[in-house]
Design a protein around this nucleic acid. Structure first.
Length: 920
RNA sequence: GGGCGACUAGCUCAGUUGGUUAGAGCGCUCCCCUCACACGGGAGAGGUCCAAGGUUCAAGUCCUUGGUCGCCCACCA
């Protein structure tokens, strides 16, 4: 057969090809009608406006690793892809595009605007899909979804109508977070706080009918135009006598009452607060308690309105300056202090939020939150890492109603109609959707007003918060509210992986809406992944200029290398620092595997020339039988290799089960590079080319079988490389891809402690010999003899049985056994309680530096010995510590003492040399 | 104002339930271009685990306090 293994590993040549192949052959299509265990995970839908950034890559890689792992373990596996319409983000982007043509959305109107947004979606969404394919995401593209697709639109309407009928969705006039740039209400979560240096202005309000004044402190003097009261604490002696009186509001010359309220903090400012119910959430509550008027002094875009009298038309910040000047001029500004405080800003556009009274739609959260908490507390949903669970529960416990309406044009329009005659509200008759211009919308408006019978009805102009539709994602994507095959098979899903930054936005809402609407938790496990930072742990940002474009790095290092890097750094609970150097390191790992394969296949060709074929050697039958436990075929190193493999696979499984991706990656890395390449391949080389055809054949069978299995073990982490190499093996008829091959499950019987012990012993001896050679600065090309003392006959037999390998690895021409322990005074020697090894080579050693090193070593040993003797001598220790611990310590002490004795001996010998005595 | 996380080798980080001499990758030093791989092989150097107390026979690991940095939540004008 033709095997093409180019000399260098070039990911660019193979990755694109396989990525496309996987998509073209529909490899990851999940079967909805078969039986057996199911694994389903839904993608956190990327915003259509976005592009794939390195954080997505981490998220997708983690999901993909687990997805591929489950799939290989024989589960019916579905990773469901899709995208989010991302209401406000998309609207901002499209508006920005319009601005380039000097247009606003108001100028082109709602219909045209939506058209533009759809165009943008097509372009941007296509790019994201391409990128995901490039990452190797093993998603089922036949099930791709978008939050504005008709079936998902219908799910949104259904959810809204149910909650509306249940009274959980209501409309009301309250103070909300208002972004004057986006011109929409926002939920609490979409507001971020920025600590800023500002001022605290002390304003003097004269008390009517007295000569007294009340001083109030404020960070926002412009709102004083809308003041409708002043509040003090009822117990505050300073103000008790003024409660019920009125003050004259400066500039506006309006009389407003002084009220008493427990919410007032006597310690802050002057203990008296101005109340602006229309522009401050606290004041809003307070104002309603005391039935104070609500005077809105601003427009939607944060300019002063007619209620602001002479300041009407001014921008809010200009007005602030003017008002302060005017107050000062009129003697109402008492003083100004520096004051740092948190300013609310729009998460999306960073504009300062203006609290604003408006009519919005809200969703009651208490009952749903209680169910969500119960699900987490009872373990129906597990959350990892552990500390996120508490954060989740705390948030649920303090939840507030959710403002779900947005004054945007891009999204699911609220399915409520208002009667133009009597302004009664009527919901859509059902959740059906119809297509208009190719896009979905509510299809069943009420025909006439329930109240007045009027027929002039108009649909509510607002759309729903994007997160309302994302909150339905795990079931809306599977067909809900219909009982589809997909919903039956794949819902509830098994797992959700998301960034901890959207725990409240998305994960929490899915849990609540899922429990309420479907009666089941939408997923049973939730894993919150970390954030990716730059190589110095700094947050990536455009301003810092340290943003990594994953596609860039994909081209440079290969997808597999970047995936592996992300995984080996992905310890749960801590953010990841990512630099080019580390990616380079794991590209080297990919290259290493590539070259191991190259070695095998190139040499195999020579072997095949002798009549054997790869098909014979690696046929499924012989692989299933591997390792060949029929004595002769299994040498020590084979038993050791298979034993290592049998140990590592369960460790990888455990690690993946618990989201310890870094551990899984580490295990595989060290197995492949250390055990397999450095030891096993090297050890096998002579046998693979052995004259003994049968021995060679056995060696080939074993090495090919372990290599092929190791490729399958690595596949979830490095899908492209492993697919490429795996396909060089002859496959069973119908085998389509390594992605569908079984994940390795070596029997526990492969574990061979005896072989492990023997191998460790040999490795230690080889290391000792190499260490000696290096220290004596011997020419590595020149074979040397060594003298060897074995403390036990077993050890001697072990070495004799593996003499060839020991000589090969230690670059020795001969190993001469001696019958007595050797003397350290005769020169450098390596020894343990089990053996001594020496290279009898007379050299002019660097005596002073050897002496220095020895003395340092001696000192170190003395410290350890003293410590251990002390501990062993402590009756409390020998009385309470487990015997195994004591035995270990005693053993260690004995060895340490032996080392110390030898060091001492060598020192005195070298000392003699240094003083002029001939060493030989 | 609450809460969380981090502090371990020059850098970036691992370190499961407390138990021999604390690990990895990169970097560094020395040697080797040995016919799979110099994206390689071999041998090394390098750490009072932020500080101070405490619990324990035994602490990087558990407790307390403090320090530095970062993050989240919060309606103190």
């Amino acid at each position: 057969m033709a095997r093409e293994i180019p000399k260098g590993y070039e990911p660019q040549l193979i990755e694109q090809r396989w990525a496309q192949h996987w998509v073209d052959t529909g490899l990851f299509r999940a079967e909805e009608s078969a039986n057996g265990p199911v694994f389903c995970i839904v993608i956190p839908p990327p915003n259509v406006t976005g592009y794939i950034h390195i954080g997505h890559m981490l998220e997708h890689t983690q999901i993909d690793v687990l997805t591929r792992w489950h799939r290989m373990r024989g589960e019916r596996t579905l990773w469901l892809p899709g995208m989010d319409h991302a209401g406000i983000s998309t609207q901002v982007v499209v508006e920005r595009e319009l601005a380039k043509e000097n247009l606003t959305r108001q100028q082109i109107g709602r219909v045209e605007f939506e058209k533009r947004a759809w165009e943008w979606k097509a372009k941007s969404g296509g790019a994201i899909k391409k990128q995901m394919i490039r990452l190797g995401d093993s998603v089922d593209w036949s099930r791709e979804k978008f939050t504005l697709d008709p079936p998902l639109y219908r799910a949104v309407l259904e959810a809204f109508l149910r909650l509306y009928r249940e009274g959980l969705i209501y409309r009301g006039r309250y103070i909300v977070n208002w972004c004057p740039r986006c011109m929409t209400a926002l939920s609490d979560l979409e507001v971020v706080h920025d600590e800023r240096q500002g001022n605290l202005w002390y304003l003097r309000y004269p008390v009517v009918g007295t000569t007294e004044s009340v001083i109030v402190a404020t960070t926002r003097p412009e709102t004083m135009l809308g003041d409708t009261g002043v509040a003090v604490h009822p117990e505050d002696e300073r103000y008790k006598h003024l409660i019920g009186k009125k003050v004259l509001l400066p500039l506006m010359n309006r009389q407003i009452p002084i009220v008493a309220d427990e919410a007032v903090d006597r310690e802050f400012g002057t203990g008296a607060v101005k109340i602006t119910p229309a522009h401050d959430p606290n004041d809003f509550e307070l104002g309603r308690r005391h039935k104070l008027p609500e005077i809105d002094v601003m427009t939607e875009d944060a300019h002063m309105n007619v209620n602001a009298g002479p300041y009407a038309g001014m921008d809010r910040f200009d007005a602030r300056k003017r008002i302060v000047e005017d107050l000062k001029a009129q003697g109402f500004l008492e003083r100004v202090e520096n004051h740092s405080h948190a300013v609310s800003i729009c998460d999306r556009c960073k504009t300062v939020i203006e609290p604003r009274i408006s009519t919005q739609w809200f969703c009651k959260m208490n009952s749903m939150a209680a169910k969500a908490m119960e699900a987490v507390e009872s373990g129906k949903i597990s959350i990892a890492p552990e500390n996120q669970r508490k954060i989740f529960l705390d948030w649920m416990a303090n939840i507030r109603d959710w403002c779900i309406s947005r004054q945007l044009w891009w999204g699911h329009r609220i399915p409520i109609w208002h009667c133009k005659g009597c302004s009664a509200m009527m919901p859509a008759l059902n959740s059906d959707v119809e297509m208009v211009d190719g896009h979905a919308r509510a299809a069943s408006p009420p025909k006439k007003c329930d109240k007045c019978g009027g027929t002039e009805l108009e649909q509510d102009h607002d759309v729903l918060d994007t997160w309302f539709s994302s909150g339905l994602w795990p079931f809306s994507t599977l067909g809900w509210p219909d009982e589809t095959d997909d919903l039956r098979t794949f819902y509830p899903t098994q797992l959700l992986i998301s960034g901890y930054d959207i725990l409240f936005f998305w994960d929490a809402r899915m849990v609540m809406l899922g429990l309420h609407l479907t009666g089941r938790a939408p997923f049973s496990e939730l894993y919150l992944h970390s954030l990716v930072r730059d190589e110095h742990g700094q947050k990536m940002s455009k301003m810092r200029g340290n943003v990594v474009d994953p596609l860039d790095w994909l081209e440079k290092f290969g997808t597999d290398a970047l995936r592996f890097t992300l995984m080996i750094k992905a310890a749960p609970g801590t953010d990841i620092s990512l630099g080019e150097e580390s990616v380079l390191g794991y590209r080297a790992f990919a290259n290493k595997i590539w070259n191991a394969a190259r070695f095998l296949f190139v040499n195999l060709e020579k072997f095949e020339a002798g009549g054997d074929t790869l098909e014979d050697l690696a046929s499924r039958a012989s692989r299933a039988a591997a390792p060949h436990r029929s004595g002769a075929e299994l040498s020590l190193v084979d038993r050791w290799m298979f034993s290592q493999f049998a140990r590592i696979v369960p460790r990888v499984n455990d690690a993946l089960r618990e989201f310890r991706f870094h551990e899984a990656a580490h295990e595989i890395y060290h197995f492949f590079w250390g055990d397999f390449c450095d030891w096993y391949i090297e050890w096998c080389k002579p046998r693979l080319n052995s004259e003994d055809r049968e021995a060679a054949r056995a060696a080939w069978r074993n090495i090919l079988s372990i290599f092929e299995a190791a490729l399958r073990l690595l596949h979830p982490l490095m899908p492209f490389l492993t697919e490429e190499l795996w396909n060089q093996f002859p496959q069973a008829p119908g085998a389509r891809s390594i992605a569908l091959a079984p994940f390795p499950a070596p029997p526990a019987a492969w574990i061979d402690e005896h072989a492990e012990r023997d191998m460790a012993q040999l490795q230690e001896i080889i290391a000792a010999a190499r260490n000696l050679r290096a220290e004596l600065k011997l020419d590595p090309r020149k074979p040397m003899e060594a003298n060897f003392f074995a403390a036990t006959p077993q050890l001697r037999a072990l070495i004799e049985a593996n003499l060839g390998a020991v000589k090969q690895f230690a670059a020795l021409s001969a190993l001469n056994f001696v019958d007595a322990r050797m003397n350290a005074a005769d020169g450098p020697l390596r020894s343990t309680s089990e053996f001594d090894i020496r290279i009898p080579y007379e050299i002019v050693a660097d005596i002073p530096s050897e002496l220095a090193a020895l003395r340092k070593e001696k000192e170190r040993l003395e410290g350890i010995i003293a410590g251990q003797e002390k501990q062993l001598g402590n009756p409390a220790f020998s009385g309470k510590a487990p015997p195994a611990v004591i035995a270990k310590l005693q053993e260690s002490l004995a060895e340490r003492k032996a080392e110390h004795a030898k060091a001492t001996q060598r020192i005195s010998q070298l000392d003699g040399t240094a003083r002029g005595t001939s060493p030989a």
